[in-house]
């Protein structure tokens, strides 16, 4: 039986300590049943490498991204400013998050409201751990030679030019990375961005996630890797719609690393 250390910022502050990084869990990371396992996987990795981190726990709150994309700038700014106040209270300097939407908003949009932090997406963070030799996922050879395809999240890729880090992480697993027809700058959206996650799609002839899943299945990969909670949901739903959930699995990068490390 192993237990993991998950300190909150409040607990650390009470002890007069401050962690190196704040792990921003995000709403999906906190509440989505499937995606919570990504949060847990990432916490396990953080524990294993002994990074000094903390979470906000109940003090965390939506970044405001979906409200902003849906047009509600008031609500976004209310959220952003109260989050910034919390960050200030704990003197936060560096934030790591697994959600590209939180990442984009914290990194690019909070500065205009006075919140300046070093914000890193977990794909980049994992790549750094691998480069530093702190994580050696290929040792266990769990995925050696397996075909994996990677789906670019729009908010990571086009929005912020993070294309390489997730791929480097997958390569470190000793997998065979196969690209979809549309990848990197040409990557096709999963269909959930811009607050689409929170409403039904407009009338059309097809669901975007099905279109994207078909492309992923065409690669013949049995694992679809993702680095975004919304993409993970959309692609998992797509795989289900195609009745392929037995053979094809959708995982987040952190889950793959945690599996490889036997965590």
């Amino acid at each position: 039986m192993s237990t993991y250390n998950i300190p909150t910022m409040a607990e650390m502050a009470a002890k007069g300590e401050s962690p190196e990084i704040l792990f921003w869990v995000g709403c999906a990371g906190s509440f989505d049943d499937r995606y919570k396992s990504v949060t847990k996987a990432f916490v396990k990795i953080l524990n294993k490498v002994g990074v000094s981190f903390a979470v906000l726990g109940q003090e965390e709150s939506c970044t405001g991204d979906p409200a902003r994309r849906a047009g509600n700038e008031f609500l976004f700014q209310m959220q952003a400013m109260s989050n910034i106040q919390v960050f200030e209270g704990y003197n936060v300097k560096k934030i790591v998050t697994a959600c590209p939407h939180c990442f984009n908003t914290l990194k690019n949009e909070y500065p205009a409201l006075g919140g300046n932090y070093e914000v890193i997406h977990h794909s980049t963070f994992l790549q750094q751990l691998i480069d530093e030799g702190k994580v050696k996922p290929a040792d266990g050879q769990a995925f050696k030679g397996q075909k994996i395809t990677y789906h670019d999240s729009c908010y990571l890729g086009r929005a912020n030019n993070v294309y390489e880090a997730p791929r480097r992480v997958l390569e470190a697993l000793d997998t065979e990375l196969v690209e979809m027809k549309r990848c990197k700058t040409n990557g096709l959206c999963c269909g959930a961005g811009g607050a689409q996650m929170f409403k039904d799609s407009e009338p059309g002839t097809k669901e975007i996630n099905v279109e994207r899943t078909e492309e992923a299945l065409e690669t013949g990969a049995k694992i679809i890797a993702s680095a975004c909670p919304f993409c993970l949901t959309m692609l998992s739903d797509g795989v289900k719609a195609k009745e392929k959930e037995e053979e094809v699995k959708v995982y987040d990068l952190a889950e793959l690393i945690a599996q490889a490390e036997d965590l």
């Binding site: 909150t8 709403c27 906190s30 509440f31 847990k40 726990g57 109940q58 709150s61 939506c62 959220q79």
Partner: peptide
Amino acid sequence: FAPWKFAPTDRFNWA
């Protein structure tokens, strides 16, 4: 404080 209908007090339950 989340786009879904969950109680904010449950936010840390995953841990």
